[in-house]
Design a protein around this nucleic acid. Structure first.
Lengths: 149, 149
DNA sequence: TTTTCTGCAAACTGTTTGCAAAGGC
DNA sequence: GCCTTTGCAAACAGTTTGCAGAAAA
């Protein structure tokens, strides 16, 4: 049985952009692209290392950081920080844009989207003196499970 | 000559809340409160250490982290992360609420406020399943100086 | 005089870097 | 065959922790 689904638009774009930028194909990079394409919400580099090892596709830690860094430069992934000083990464795609609710107690991360928010940010980005290339919003609080305790 | 201005409302509230929580007064805590009360925008713990040393009021690094942590618990300071994996802290007060534009190249941090943004977030916070206690927004990009290069 | 606060140094943890071997083109 | 990519181990940087002495109440 095959575990490979048809490559997602993000996955295809990633492959293309990497080639255009002069990168070669490598095992570590491919494994990470597969993981990122399938993953639902932002993960840490160390979580990815564990997942890849669990999938019998172990990738060196340094390679994970290096590849994530390249992908960030090429705007294929977004790096976010939700408060514990640990970087998290998720793919950057028009159909995947969202923000996060972060539980301060258990660390749970819940994605959400909101048009009014995006509009406010778009307006702001246009009038800011900066050349704005991205943004992120984090709502901090307690998830229902932790609030009940 | 005295360098001490009249204590700000934030400073007074901090003092009161610390006492209520059962904390004693100590040199390190006082020095940090003075610094935070005077500081314009979010700083890192290490920057604060340097500034305190420059002011001839050196404070141990561990104490800086410990005090900042207490102040965060008491909601007297807000901890933010703008992308380099380093925590920054600034006082939390109604008249000091703002968000940040962060330059990816030089690291410059520029504060801004926006009503439409706050309204969108307020609406979101109310309808989110979470008990939302705070939020932060970071616009990433390049500052005018770096964009010119 | 009791308890908290502080500073120092060591430990930790996530991230980065140097280098030699493996792998793509 | 040349040059990139990879993994390993060591180095790093920010943060946390243990502990003994100083300071507050």
């Amino acid at each position: 049985m095959s575990v490979t689904n048809a490559p997602s638009p993000w996955r295809l774009r990633a492959e293309e952009r990497l080639t255009d930028a002069g990168y070669r194909r490598g095992g570590a990079r491919t494994a990470l692209l597969d993981l990122l394409a399938a993953q639902g919400c932002a993960r840490t580099a160390l979580e990815m290392e564990d997942e890849l090892r669990a999938q019998q596709r172990p990738v060196g830690r340094a390679s994970i950081y290096r590849v994530l860094d390249e992908l960030e430069q090429l705007r294929l992934v977004q790096r976010i920080e939700v408060g514990q000083g640990i970087a998290r990464y998720e793919r950057l795609a028009p159909d995947h844009h969202h923000h996060h609710l972060a539980c301060a107690e258990c660390g749970e991360l819940v994605p959400f989207t909101d048009d009014a928010l995006e509009q406010a940010i778009a307006r702001l980005s246009a009038k800011a003196g900066f050349e704005v290339t991205g943004h992120d919003v984090v709502l901090h609080g307690r998830c229902p499970a932790c609030a009940r305790r």
